[in-house]
Amino acid sequence: MPRLSIWLIRAALIYLLLGFTVGGLLLWHKGLPLNPALWRLLPAHMEFLLMGWIVHLVMGVAYWILPRFQTKRPLSALVWLSFCLLNGGIWLISISTFVAFAPTIQLVGRIAEVGAIMAFAVHAWPRIKPTSL
């Protein structure tokens, strides 16, 4: 498994733990109320699991197993960029409910996430081909 996939998949596992922890707290609170302020963590729960867990995992596995050119995985820098943008986006949206200017922060976070997915798609595009090419 290439180093970049290791980073992406380990990040996915960390986000799974974070997302399940927040989700667990919210579910516990629905049953046995702890503190109503916990609901401010709902966007973090959604980001950690949808973007953090699922998207990191998919990107990590795709980078690892999509067909290569001889032995090379071209445009890897784009995947590193995607990793940075995705994490920036996840955290900006997750903290937005705790700070001022929430709508602006959410907007910047989403733009970062769109950029992340575009960068990943540009990297993956030429690798979607018959293995022999």
Binding site: L16, L17, F20, T21, G23, G24, L25, L26, L27, W28, K30, G31, L32
Partner: peptide, 18 residues
């Protein structure tokens, strides 16, 4: 009882993820 069962559901899933 439903509240306690929800809390248990939260704990079990968290342990499963862990």
């Amino acid at each position: 009882g439903w509240g306690w069962l929800l809390a248990l559901a939260a704990l079990l899933q968290w342990l499963g993820g862990f």
